[in-house]
Nucleic acid binder design. Structure first.
Lengths: 147, 147
DNA sequence: ACCGATTTGACAGCATACTGTCAATTCAAC
DNA sequence: GTTGAATTGACAGTATGCTGTCAAATCGGT
């Protein structure tokens, strides 16, 4: 079954991507996971609480919780009072966090460009389509067992 | 950049696949990772030492080492003397291990078939091709930093 | 045969993701 | 308004993967 082989490709690609991401942002004192959280915070149109970010990223709430706590400790994000919920603070970038995001962008672009050269954008689109279909079915079968 | 979006798809597909795999083999007292190791051992034409299995799977030697140790403890594999290397034992399936592999196969087929229905096999091939290209480039840039 | 480089497993430690549980808080139904 | 359900963060524990280091064993060049 060709699909089973694709699964192995996904496993390895995932591992290599995380490792490469770690290397890429290591000079900034970041890791792949924290980079992703920071990016999600930066992309959001408005500050969000932790649980909201987790749903955005498709991760468990507590995984993001720990990463955010660590980013707070590192001074890259800060928690502001949420007028709509006393316990659920809003995650915001600090000045230092904004600088980090900017630095990441400068590193990220040539890296992605290098990986993309020679890759047919149409094929990339097809790959993304296959993965998304897969994700939908897996999310169904996994059901609401997340968090 | 479409490729960046594909990365996120890979991350999520990977997480969902591992979660689904865990659920699939949980009735057998296995996990996704142990299942993969067991499968690699079962597929090998001849018994291999741990380090060889790790290279087969594209994982770090020590990751596989721990999983194999746990599988030994669970009675699914056993370590036999290696005539070519005194310390490096050969990993072999036990009878219980062979039964587990057979049970897994019965579970796996309908699961994969269900995921595959309606997915164009040509698109699957393209997705695999894209991921493999990606993997090659990532492996290059990551260089020999593994293990 | 010897000596250095490599491979291998053992041990220890870290980063990430998951789960389960709990109390505080908010939300919704009535 | 009150009460039960859902959300949220804190805390604790597990599984997987990585790295680094060490000693034993093998391999290779001389």
């Amino acid at each position: 079954m060709a699909l089973s082989a694709l699964f192995l490709d996904i496993f390895r690609a995932n591992a290599l991507l995380v490792a490469a991401g770690d290397q890429l942002v290591a000079p900034l004192g970041l890791t792949s996971a924290r980079w992703q959280v920071l990016g999600t915070v930066a992309m959001a149109p408005a500050p969000q609480p932790v649980a909201h970010i987790a749903r955005d990223m498709g991760l468990a709430r507590q995984s993001v919780q720990r990463l955010v706590n660590e980013l707070v400790e590192a001074g890259l994000v800060e928690l502001r009072e949420n007028p709509h919920h006393r316990r659920s603070k809003l995650v915001c970038l600090t000045d230092q966090g904004r600088q980090a995001v900017a630095s990441i962008h400068k590193l990220q672009r040539p890296w992605v460009d290098g990986l993309a050269t020679g890759l047919d954008s149409e094929k990339i689109a097809i790959a993304a389509e296959v993965l998304q279909t897969l994700r939908q079915r897996l999310a169904q079968s996994t059901d609401e067992s997340s968090d």
